[in-house]
Write a protein that binds this DNA or RNA. Structure first.
Lengths: 130, 130
DNA sequence: GCTATATTAAACTAGATGGTTAACTAATAT
DNA sequence: ATATTAGTTAACCATCTAGTTTAATATAGC
């Protein structure tokens, strides 16, 4: 179990790194927000921003590498469309923490117990969180 | 509405930037995963990692600035504890996109329509720049 | 007081990031 | 055929990042 599981985890981490770093920039988040309304050309995407077309083009490439957008090239026009899939990865990561604000303290205690075998040690006899 | 709303949005963006960039690093995600089990000292947090204590200390400071951890200083020992609150900000951001994988295509269509007044959408007859 | 421990601070490095301008490629329009 | 448009590539720059090592600070124990 160990080797493959660890490799799997690294892959997940790689993808999470890509996606989280892609959305950790407000320009790219704005581009995504725009694209969530529907596909658009690079030039039109760049128009609202106070930066060069080249800069926006680079941002789009970051989003593309994270698979958050897809590009449909038609002649000299690149039409970009939003792809939500990678955000589900973020969602899945958040799943591990959502218990901290959705469940009761009781459920929280259960959660901590359930996962405590992962770390072994952690002498924390105090879980006085907020 | 405009001015205050825009400022608010900037604040949100600032906080999102902080939080997303904090979690966009696998070392820091691992630290959070560990801390979600319960508070821990800096030295113990650093132990599993193949990097210097100083490096981990810096990562912790990034998490602290994003308010993802709190620090309780007791003598020479800094005890760090997980704070989930900022992740709700990420959750709220994701809310805008969750519709893309939870709802039917029908609901998606509705969603796009509802928000379309924000941008005047897709076909903005190119107002070229630069 | 002296020594060991816990942690941060400072100074440095290599590489990534976010932006620029200028040059290029390719498709379209006149 | 030529000029315009859409977009990328290349080269460059300033700043940030993630790590290092060494030094400093402060507490704890003997």
């Amino acid at each position: 179990m160990l080797a493959s599981a660890l490799i799997e985890e690294d892959v997940d981490d790689d993808r999470l790194d890509l996606v989280l770093r892609a959305i950790a920039d407000r320009t790219r988040r704005a581009l995504l927000a725009r694209l969530a309304q529907g596909p658009a050309r690079v030039t039109d995407l760049a128009a609202p921003f106070d930066m060069s077309l080249v800069a926006v083009s680079k941002h789009l490439k970051v989003l593309e590498r994270a698979r958050l957008i897809e590009r449909d090239i038609d002649g000299r026009v690149h039409r970009c469309s939003f792809q939500a899939e990678p955000l589900r990865e973020v969602e899945r990561w958040l799943d591990h923490y959502r218990v901290f604000w959705t469940d009761t303290l009781d459920a929280l205690a259960r959660h901590v117990e359930d996962d405590s075998d992962q770390t072994g040690k952690a002498d924390d006899s105090e879980k006085e969180r907020s």
